[in-house]
Computed example of a mutant assay.
Amino acid sequence: MPPIETINAPGLPIPAGHYSHATRAGNLVCVSGQLPIRPDGTHTGDLPFEAQAEQTLANLRTVLEAAGARLTDCIEVTVYLVGVEHWKTFNEIYARHFGDRKPARAVVPVGALHYGYLLEIAARAWVEHA
């Protein structure tokens, strides 16, 4: 097994719990659930779903880049979504960010997230250019 590297992305708040933004073992990058928190640490729970989705995907991209990966390197994505009514809008925003790349994905409806957030996204990426 290759060594496991802990990654915290510059430009994002340090995680408040006992976890890192991501870990990397060889070519595999595992990204912890990303919330729509702003880079300065302020919350977006008061913003509409679309704005929260854009911020969450931007945070995911930032963490992947810190690990030497890109969105197009994702092989699996898990989305925790408050309110199944947001699924269609999320899918449209997600497709715009991922383009032709279609990693395996699960969208899991949940009851509530901290601070009024409406989604959380975790991912795994395989980086051939390790």
Rank of each mutant, 00 (worst) to 15 (best):
L57N: 02
Q55F: 03
G41I: 05
W126Q: 13
E120I: 00
F49N: 01
L28R: 13
D73L: 05
I93N: 06
H21M: 13
E76A: 13
K88C: 01
I93W: 01
R96G: 08
V127I: 15
I4L: 14
L47M: 14
A25K: 09
R124K: 14
C74S: 12
T56D: 04
R38P: 00
G83I: 01
D73Y: 00
A58H: 11
P3F: 01
Y117G: 01
D73W: 02
N27L: 10
G68V: 00
E120M: 08
Y94S: 00
N91V: 08
P3N: 04
H129F: 10
A58I: 03
Y80N: 06
V127M: 13
Y19Q: 07
Y115W: 10
A104G: 05
A9C: 02
A95V: 03
F90C: 02
G68K: 05
Y19P: 01
E128D: 15
L35H: 11
Y94E: 03
G68M: 06
N8P: 02
I7A: 09
P109M: 00
L60S: 08
E76M: 07
S32W: 02
T78S: 12
N59S: 11
C74N: 09
N91L: 09
L47Y: 13
E50K: 04
F98I: 01
G45W: 09
P103G: 08
V108P: 00
R96A: 14
P10T: 10
G83V: 01
N27D: 15
W87Y: 07
